[in-house]
Amino acid sequence: MKLLRIGIKASTGHFAIPFLIFERKTFPIPMYSTAIGFVCNILGDEAKINQFLSSGFSIAIVGDHDGVVEEYTWFRNLSKESHITKFGYSLNREINNEIEHPGGQLPVKIQTLINPRINLFLKAKEDILEMIRESFENPRYTSRLHLGRSEDVVDEVAVELVNCEKKQVFNTNGYTWIPSPEFADEISDSYEELYKKIVGSAYKVSSVYTARNNKRVFKFIHAKLYCGAIPMIKFKIPEVLSWNNTPLFLGRIQLPK
Results as ranks from 00 to 15, higher is better:
Val208His: 04
Leu194Trp: 09
Tyr175Asp: 07
Tyr195Met: 07
Lys204Glu: 14
Thr176Arg: 10
Arg212Asn: 08
Asn171Leu: 02
Glu165Thr: 10
Val208Ala: 04
Leu194Gln: 09
Tyr195Thr: 09
Ile187Asp: 01
Asn163His: 08
Ile178Gly: 03
Glu160Leu: 06
Lys204Gly: 04
Pro139Ser: 07
Pro179Thr: 01
Glu160Thr: 08
Ser180Glu: 15
Val205Tyr: 06
Val162Gly: 00
Tyr203Gln: 08
Val199Ile: 10
Cys164Val: 13
Arg212Leu: 14
Leu161Glu: 05
Glu151Ala: 11
Tyr209His: 13
Val162Asn: 01
Phe170Arg: 12
Ile187Met: 13
Ser188Tyr: 03
Pro139His: 07
Gly174Cys: 04
Asp185Ile: 00
His146Gln: 04
Arg149Trp: 05
Glu165Asn: 09
Thr176Gln: 07
Ser201Arg: 15
Arg133Cys: 09
Thr210Ile: 14
Leu129Glu: 13
Ser190Trp: 02
Ile128Cys: 03
Tyr175Pro: 06
Ser207Arg: 02
Val199Leu: 08
Thr176Glu: 09
Glu156Val: 13
Ile128Thr: 07
Lys167Met: 08
Val162Thr: 01
Asn213Ser: 13
Glu130Gly: 01
Val157Gly: 02
Asn213Gln: 12
Ser180Gln: 11
Arg144Ile: 15
Phe170Asn: 11
Tyr141Met: 09
Glu186Gly: 10
Leu145Asp: 06
Phe136Tyr: 12
Lys197Trp: 04
Val157Lys: 04
Pro179Gly: 03
Leu129Val: 12
Tyr141Gln: 07
Phe183Thr: 05
Ala158Val: 13
Phe170Trp: 07
Gly200His: 02
Gly174Ala: 06
Val162Arg: 00
Ser143Trp: 07
Asn173Ser: 15
Asp185Met: 10
Thr210Gln: 14
Arg216Thr: 06
Leu161Ser: 04
Phe170Met: 03
Met131Asp: 10
Leu129Asp: 06
Glu130Asn: 15
Leu194His: 08
Glu137Gln: 15
Ala184Gln: 04
Trp177Asp: 09
Glu193Val: 07
Leu161Arg: 01
Arg212Ala: 11
Arg140Val: 03
Asn213Glu: 14
Ser143Lys: 14
Ser207Glu: 03
Glu165Met: 05
Lys167Ile: 01
Asp155Gln: 15
Glu151Gly: 01
Lys196Ala: 11
Asp152Trp: 03
Ile178Glu: 02
Ser188Cys: 09
Arg133Phe: 11
Arg133Thr: 11
Asn213Arg: 13
Asn214Lys: 14
Tyr141Val: 06
Glu193Ile: 06
Glu192Phe: 01
Leu161His: 03
Ile132Ser: 04
Phe218Trp: 14
Thr142Tyr: 12
Ala184Lys: 07
Phe170Val: 05
